[in-house]
Design a binder for these strands. Sequence first.
DNA 1: GTTGGTTTTGGGAGCGCTCCCATACTCATT
DNA 2: AATGAGTATGGGAGCGCTCCCAAAACCAAC
Lengths: 335, 335
Amino acid sequence: MPTLEEVAQRSGVSRSTVSRVINNDPHVSEETRQKVLQAIAELDYHPNAVARSLAAGHTQIIGLVIPTAVAMLFSDPYFPRLIQGVAAECNASDYSVMLWIGEPEYERRTIHRHLNSGLLDGIIVASAVRGDPVVSALQQSGLPFVMVGRPDDPTISYVDVDNVHGAREAVLHLLRQGYRRVATITGPLNTAAAFDRLEGYRAALQSRGIAVDENLIAEGDFTEESGVLAMRKLLPHKPDAVFCASDTMAQGAMRVIRGEGLRIPEDIAIVGYDDMPFAVNLDPPLTTVRQPIERMGQEAVKLLLDLLAHPNDGPHRLVLPTELIIRASTVRGNS
Amino acid sequence: MPTLEEVAQRSGVSRSTVSRVINNDPHVSEETRQKVLQAIAELDYHPNAVARSLAAGHTQIIGLVIPTAVAMLFSDPYFPRLIQGVAAECNASDYSVMLWIGEPEYERRTIHRHLNSGLLDGIIVASAVRGDPVVSALQQSGLPFVMVGRPDDPTISYVDVDNVHGAREAVLHLLRQGYRRVATITGPLNTAAAFDRLEGYRAALQSRGIAVDENLIAEGDFTEESGVLAMRKLLPHKPDAVFCASDTMAQGAMRVIRGEGLRIPEDIAIVGYDDMPFAVNLDPPLTTVRQPIERMGQEAVKLLLDLLAHPNDGPHRLVLPTELIIRASTVRGNS
DNA sequence: GTTGGTTTTGGGAGCGCTCCCATACTCATT
DNA sequence: AATGAGTATGGGAGCGCTCCCAAAACCAAC
């Protein structure tokens, strides 16, 4: 591996000058620049990122942490898409992504070791649960970070989708279709997303003067199995529609409903959340709330880079819109 | 951020000695070690990973490359699970994972820059397509790397599952169930996985003295739609069972079969491959070949670390076993 | 008390870069 | 010619660590 010094010698200039052309410093004569460029090409020189980081005081690397608790959810494409968004935006901005998947026994020590190692310029935390130790460690460390999903602490920067609004629109749609006993299967209520979607559900009912019946609310954990369980609990209370906080749970709920010999949407309508790829292939195709997942990843990176550039700014917050995708699972009549 | 030097001063020893206790060098007296440890605790010192990397000549970071072409496949849980396996093993070995998702535009331009930046000690390439430029760049660079999935070039280290064996077991199972006209829907035959699975199919038939009927072989591309098309081609040749090289294609095939009013498994049995989460929820639940995806990620890391420790060893190869998961789609009678 | 071996410790020389400051050189302007 | 402003270059001093070698300390045995 050739070094800066060798390039300098070969092109007959100083180390500093080579550094300048590499970093596009304008204070280099065109002639010199060409000489240097040629030497770089001849030697197939590539700057050493580590040395550069040490000298410059930053690494151009950001960390993406996915806390343990949610890593299980890897069975749905949420995280892959988020990762893709983050990676794409980082590539575009000449940053690299360090992946950090929280392991069950990650102790505080390990967290701090990583956060204080100086390897990361900043961090994106995906979907932390309430009171996640990573978050407090992060705050302590002073490292710039942004969260995907609304945190409890209002001083933290984040990007989120408007879960309240998305859920409300979904439930209002159900109401407009004439359903009256609208139930909901929530996600784990220690996550902000699940909580907000439940809020949206309540808000929709209340705005139409419908009392919220707690019997029509069942908590799941975003998995299909939990959707099955929740639906079984709901059934005795005769709902005529169910708003599920994830497509995966909706899928479980649909299985139960069909198992009972009931029809969708004639007897019970179903709305999901996420617009997962499989939602359109369900029988019937699932009405659902689409979230711009990749975009969240992208925006999180943008926010973070902004934070790096302007450390004294207050926290950034960005709430992205959702989109209600109406399919056959909520539209009776012409089927 | 305190430095080594500050810890040294506070504990009244030299920089070198502090370095020794940090790196668990046995040549330190217990007394000194305690003094140093205390100073470290008091100052909340954490070694700077960048400086350490520069001085030591390695970074304890490995790259995980997911080539563009397959990034689309992010809609199935293969990559998430692989990533999880890689991350878990890296955590356990005190390495970090740098994620690198090939972007159409940036790939070519930045590939060499990344490989030669000295940031990565080694690389794992997930499912490269044939002739992927990343692979040749990698070979050129001299960076240690291992691939997940058998490469063309036999000098490259890799971990793979035993696709031939997995397919053979699946087909033998069909044969044992009494099916005689066993067809197959293959993946794209320019991928090693698809090729090997077809090999297994042939091997199974031949080992039972059954001639391979080329009319019973249809090529797909792992997508559901291609499963539909392939099944339509197969139907006129009256298969009584179909071995599909992916669950997704199996799903398509099942749709066609049911569309024809045929029963599964009474009229036609179906076997898939992958054991995707949805396989168990199909109607009927799908018999399939399960692959140890997380484990592949883990083993890939182990192989790579071994390669880093013993650079002069020849290429490592590891083929992991598959597991046949028998469900209702191949078992007639008691339904 | 000397010798020789072993263990423990200290200090210097980098790793390959950036950044700042000093120098040299260029070109008007007086 | 002398001055000053502006631009191009060079060189030194780090960034915070590891690694090697030499020095110091210790301990046993003669």
